[in-house]
Amino acid sequence: MAVKISYRMQKNLLIVGFLIVPLALLVTFSFYPAVKLIYYSFTSWDGLSQQYPWVGWANYATIFTDPQLFGSFLHNFSYFIGGLIQNVVALYFAVILSSKLKGRSFFRATLFLPYMLNAVAVAFIFKFLYLDGGALDTLLQSLGLGFLQHDWIGNDSIVNWALAFVSLWEFFGFNMVIYLAALQSIPEELHEAAALDGAGRFRTFWYIIMPNLRAIIQINLLLTVSGALEAFNIPFVMTNGSPPTATFLINTMNVAFTFDNYGLASAMAIVLLVIVFIVITIQQRLVGGGKDVV
């Protein structure tokens, strides 16, 4: 640089220059749409016209009175329960993997593998597996569990649980890796002290390990619960979001992009946002100790 600029001046230039593009992106693709969403939610905008007819709270009233809309949260319920089980499974395997074990890295690598598979590929694999009389039914038959055979996708009372299992299968490895890292960061002395005091395996886990995992359990639950509320990909690909499997978010997208009712869809998105926020807040109250957590 020919002309030396003072460091004070440089600092100001740099701060503005380095932040302007990232902040512009943040505003354009996050804050501005969020504000727009609130505005649209009070209109009956069709997504195309220049007119935004004001309808007040009518869209919100529709959501809470039309069982097809708010009722679709019932379909998210299986993903929620599946998510809780997913965390138990993940923690269980993390405990096993952090104990004395032969072939640890092989087991860890394999259990994590589903997370690395493309989501659409996973959905197709399970769609095939779940066919009536398909691979899963055949497997159950050959294991002598023939009475468990089902039309996993075709039976409306089972399908959401079958889909929630796909989510569990795909994502438990992700939670497991996080739990594993947390378990390995617990100092060895704690285990030794507990053993000296004569604590058994279960008591050590419950009184020594669990309290140390509190923050991590909270992160994982937060990810899982918001994931359950936002379940979309799996039913979208596996059943084309058919009515018995349409989660709240699938309905939101349909209302917007299929039925061109952007106003109502925006209100649905806002409702979802508020619910995610409430759930996160309640959870933080319950589990607590989330200060050191993103």
């Binding site: 727009k36 918001s226 979309f232 978010l249 939101t252 925006s266 979802l272 946002l273």
Partner: peptide, 17 residues
Amino acid sequence: VVLFIPTITTQVAVFGV
């Protein structure tokens, strides 16, 4: 703050952008 806004929910408005 943005971390708590699930991206997929705002797509209806991002679409316009």
